[in-house]
Design a protein around this nucleic acid. Structure first.
Lengths: 202, 202
DNA sequence: GGACTTCTGGAACGATTATTATATAATTAA
DNA sequence: TTAATTATATAATAATCGTTCCAGAAGTCC
């Protein structure tokens, strides 16, 4: 927050949101600086680099912006105020709902926006992989809690079950991008969650 | 097959395979012509364009090459010599096995190689979406057959069940790219298929 | 009113993008 | 042996990539 100097001519927060929508739709490498600058209010290269340092710097901010807004749906996975089953189920349903909304690009930015990378920018892909791992660990903790408190039997294959739910969760991104409506994914989630009852009954 | 003229100085088939591996790993836009030409035996721009017309032309050939080799694993979904359940299960397991092999890039080329696209090349993404739809229709036909011959009850929500399996199938690509081993995905498939028995018993 | 600080417009940077032009080499058919 | 055909090497194309430079504009502080 500079107390002196010429004031910025554009709204930084709005610019980050505009950039997020572009990166979300086209991905990190396929979104050009010219596109970004145009969407951010037609700002000049100088303004861009003064505010964000680099394209990668902006992308890092965009990822945090996404996580703290749209991405919050996956925080259901680490919500311990409900049963583990309810947490997993709500996490899946809210993710499916958010990712299929038409008011923004479809799918999950953390899954989609750095799939295609040239070798010299593999660290961008790795960065998103780390963010996905955070979500995976939430799911893992959630299922471990279920075993610990008797929601699921001790014999439960935790690693397998985490992979089952995470694989489905990640598949939602492609489904959403291909235009699948929320209702059908929601129905599939209902069917998927029936596995939980099968497991808890045994 | 030209009967006259100077013979080609490189093996066209091998060049397509080399290009496939690059597109598979980095995606359509993130793979440059310079990289491609180097991997294809260090051929010149002139040789490249004489043989493939354009980068897009090469990519279309690559997609067909993939479908007729590695991609064949998904033809299990349209194999009517076994039960529908066995066809779905085998399609998933073979896809998981192939996509996690370390002898080539991980994941499915049809799912991964055109996720990030600039607007002017959206038709590339659409082309792959069409190929994915072919697989989806195999799954759909397979499940419809199951309902028709009594493997699954008439009350089965076909659209839901197709989405359930396809979403999981597409999620395998991200799992494989993130380094998930075959065994754990295979275990998840076993659990996923238990849904089939739940449905057929009702 | 300077001095200081920050942001902006605009031009330019070198590198890389996919693609094309030109001239020549290597083959077959007549 | 000449013509026709196809592939080659090399150079150059225009456009775009992310980024930097520079002079000036627009503020606050003393």
């Amino acid at each position: 927050m500079p107390r002196t100097g010429r004031p910025r001519g554009f709204n930084r927060d709005e610019a980050v949101v505009a950039a997020m929508l572009l990166f979300w739709e086209h991905g990190f490498e396929s979104t050009s600086l010219a596109q970004l600058r145009a969407a951010m209010g037609g700002i000049s290269p100088a303004s861009f680099y003064a505010a964000f340092e680099s394209k990668e710097g902006l992308f890092r901010e965009v990822v945090q912006q996404y996580i703290s807004t749209y991405g919050q749906v996956s925080e259901s996975f680490c919500d311990t105020t409900m049963t583990s089953k309810a947490a997993i189920e709500q996490g899946l349903r809210r993710s499916a709902r958010m990712q299929t909304e038409r008011s923004h690009p479809q799918g999950c930015l953390l899954v989609l926006s750095a799939v295609n990378c040239s070798p010299e920018q593999k660290h961008i892909r790795d960065m998103l992989a780390k963010e996905r791992e955070r979500v995976r660990n939430w799911i893992k903790d959630c299922i471990e809690r279920a075993v610990a408190n008797g929601e699921l039997p001790d014999s439960t294959d935790i690693h397998m079950l985490v992979t089952l739910f995470e694989t489905f969760l990640q598949g939602i991104s492609t489904q959403a991008q291909d235009g699948a409506p929320y209702e059908i994914i929601d129905a599939a989630i209902t069917q998927l969650m029936s596995i939980w009852d099968t497991l808890s009954a045994s």
